[in-house]
């Protein structure tokens, strides 16, 4: 049975698209047939993060309107045979997405895919609403920062009231993913800690992604950061995908790297 996972946050710029790309790719690399759907109509960016921006021909809105079929619209990822991308429309506005249209496309995707990862736009308007409405599980991406935590809490409220599952008396399974975490600043008391954010939002922790140079490097190249297995962020995303699949793994990268005396003297990293 196909599972629909929405990656959402309320606030913009916290790492939703980075996370959608990483989780989708991670699921595909573990053998699950996965499609990542970009719901950010008008501001599509998933194609850039996935490095397939020049292969977009048709988009989500074309598919809804029946201008194209699923085969023509889905872009197959070059790195994994299990991975497909459904790009958002760049020219239309949010109203081009309708609840019936989205439902029809998702039902069709469910026939062939194990996982459907929905990359939500920022905000709580139509695009974000439709991205989460049909979800079975939600990954709430949060930065350890006041406005992001507050928006995540607002989003959690919407997940438990304005989704199809909520309307039929079921619950969306919620996961907290803390991104751009800087353990050194947490130790200095300058940043909310993992447990602070867990205390406030009180949902299960899926993972902690450290603030990392690898994320920008990966997006520069159009490669999902999870493919960079040498990097802290790549490994942290890998762990998060394993936990999403039910594995129990200890959380890593929560402590600041201690610099040796020599590193301090010469400014090495």
């Amino acid at each position: 049975m196909a599972k629909i996972i929405v990656v959402t946050s309320g606030k913009g710029g916290v790492g939703k698209t980075t996370t959608s790309a990483a989780i989708g790719t991670g699921l595909a690399l573990r053998g699950f047939k996965t499609v990542i759907v970009d719901f950010d109509v008008g501001l599509r960016n998933l194609d850039l993060i996935m490095g397939c921006e020049r292969r977009v021909v048709y988009d989500f809105v074309n598919l809804i309107n029946g201008d194209s079929n699923l085969n023509q619209t889905l872009i197959k990822d070059k790195r994994s045979d299990n991975l497909y991308i459904l790009p958002a429309s760049q020219t239309r506005d949010k109203d081009a997405l309708t609840q019936e249209g989205v439902e029809k496309v998702l039902e069709e995707l469910k026939q062939t895919f194990d996982y459907i990862v929905c990359d939500s736009p920022a905000g709580i308007e139509k695009g974000a609403h439709l991205a989460m409405y049909f979800a079975d599980e939600a990954v709430v991406v949060t930065n350890p920062e006041v406005s992001s935590v507050r928006d995540s809490d607002r989003m959690l409220g919407l997940l438990s009231s304005k989704s199809r599952r909520a309307e039929s008396g079921e619950k969306i399974k919620e996961h907290l993913l803390l991104t751009r975490y800087n353990p050194a600043r947490v130790e200095n008391g300058e940043m909310l800690s993992v447990s602070d954010v867990e205390d406030i939002l009180s949902i299960p922790l899926l993972g902690v992604i450290p603030e990392s140079q690898a994320v920008l490097k990966a997006s520069n190249q159009g490669v999902p950061v999870i493919m960079d297995e040498q990097s802290d962020a790549g490994q942290a995303y890998g762990d998060a995908v394993d936990r999403l699949l039910g594995e129990e793994k200890p959380h890593r990268f929560l402590e600041a790297q201690k610099k040796s005396l020599l590193q301090r003297l010469f400014g090495g990293r």
């Binding site: 920062e145 006041v146 935590v149 947490v186 940043m191 909310l192 602070d196 406030i200």
Partner: peptide, 10 residues
């Protein structure tokens, strides 16, 4: 600790 202020306010 500004983090504890943030937590309290939140």
């Amino acid at each position: 600790s500004t983090a504890s202020m943030a937590k309290e306010r939140l």
